[in-house]
């Protein structure tokens, strides 16, 4: 039981990060039908900028600057996708994002080097010792609470943005029907750039949060991006609540699976992809997809 609750705790915390990354995938997909493979690099940029700044300034400055840096990179990638959008097929745009991700990683390696950089805990006893407390037999780090709290805050904020603000509604309109949206006077291009900026900002938040207490490294984006992608597809691309649920689920499954696979726990990473395959075969629209009316 003790083991189970401990595994659940770290599963949920990891899953929350996947969920944030998954939202990023969905936002861009909804706006452009493009799967943005540079999403993982947004996470990395956020983490690296925060790590570099935290050596000099406090988290209160480093965190927002890291998000801004992420948004900036997002805007640039967005422009790269937007410019050939009309002429290019979705596949070539997806390949373009793959190229962008390699480029971002390469440049980051040039500027920041290869070594991992320590990122202090948000509210630890010291920079690299977290406050912990015990709950239901599990040891919980305060950083894990931060991860969950930030995820919940982001989910609520994103939800409210899409539901209650004019810009958010305009973005949804573009996703549903770009031509219609243009006819009623929405600047579709601006909305697409905005979706990239939002996705990148979310990614950067995930990056800073996940690396706190651990390390930031130029090569960290790929793995997180892939997990987030799995979650986004599992939840149904473009389906926010599905992506969030799938992200958390993925984290928990990955964590609990070590109980089943004895002594080869590195295979828990494969769990994400096995689940993805199974779900794609059985429920191609994602786990939370509603049944479509039969035509």
């Amino acid at each position: 039981m003790e083991q189970f609750s401990q595994l659940l705790v770290s599963g949920i915390a990891n899953g929350c990060i996947y969920a944030i990354v998954a939202i990023g995938f969905s936002i861009i997909y909804a706006g452009t039908q493009v799967i943005n493979f540079a999403q993982g690099e947004f996470v990395m940029v956020g983490a690296m900028v925060a790590a570099v700044l935290l050596a000099k300034v406090s988290l209160l400055i480093a965190f927002p600057v890291a998000i801004l840096a992420g948004c900036l990179v997002g805007a640039v990638v967005g422009l790269c996708v937007l410019i050939p959008l009309k002429r290019a097929s979705v596949v070539s745009l997806v390949i373009l994002t793959v190229g962008a991700s390699l480029l971002i990683r390469g440049l980051a390696q040039l500027f920041w080097g290869e070594e991992g950089r320590m990122v202090p805990y948000f509210t630890g006893v010291t920079a690299n010792e977290d406050n912990i407390f015990h709950f239901a037999g599990a040891v919980i780090g305060v950083q894990q609470i931060w991860v969950v709290a930030i995820t919940i805050a982001l989910v609520i904020a994103t939800h409210c943005f899409f539901k209650y603000t004019l810009t958010g509604r305009a973005m949804r309109a573009c996703a549903l029907n770009p031509t219609g949206a243009r006819l009623v006077g929405i600047n579709v291009h601006r909305m697409i750039i905005l979706s990239f900026i939002m996705a990148a900002g979310l990614g950067a938040v995930a990056g800073v949060t996940v690396s706190a207490g651990l390390y930031a490294r130029c090569t960290m984006g790929a793995a997180l991006g892939l997990k987030g992608f799995c979650a986004a597809v599992l939840g149904g691309l473009g389906n926010y609540s599905g992506g969030i649920a799938a992200g958390v689920l993925l984290g928990v499954v990955e964590s609990l699976i070590v109980l089943i696979i004895p002594s080869m726990s590195d295979y828990s990473d494969a769990a994400a992809f096995v689940i993805l395959l199974v779900v794609l075969l059985l429920k191609p629209d994602g786990i939370l997809a509603r049944k479509k009316a039969v035509a």
Binding site: Q3, Q6, N14, V210, M220, S255, L256, S265, D269
Partner: peptide, 11 residues
């Protein structure tokens, strides 16, 4: 590339 080994260590 894993960032959390708590599950394995819990075991």
């Amino acid at each position: 590339s894993d960032t959390d080994m708590t599950p394995q260590l819990t075991k």
